[in-house]
Amino acid sequence: MPDAKRSASIVSGTLDLLILKTLSIEPAHGYAIAQHIKRLSRDALTVEEGSLYPALQRMQVKGWIAAEWKKSPTGRQARYYKLTALGRRQLDAEQQAFESSIAAITRVLRSAES
């Protein structure tokens, strides 16, 4: 198992995509978003919390997500984020762009091998 410190940090720009993807499943608070990304990537990706919250706020300003304070299961007040319609469109767009760029990179790698 790779050391947590040496796991890949998230390329800037893709963090937005990961957050949007996470929130497309259900509304969540910041901590849950970070855990979700880490778990789904089998600890390959760690979210630097220091950049998670600013990213959330920026996305709020852009109108992709909305926030409200709610009681969490543990009983404490937590800020829950949810995807807006605009955010859903943004997710589709970013996902498409990401996939096509991955495909392009893969093509380059393959051709370099052959």
């Binding site: 910041g30 901590y31 970070a34 800020r79």
Partner: peptide
């Protein structure tokens, strides 16, 4: 802001 960070740390 403080509340949100505090919640994160506590979790």
């Amino acid at each position: 802001v403080d509340d949100e960070i505090a919640f994160h740390l506590a979790s």
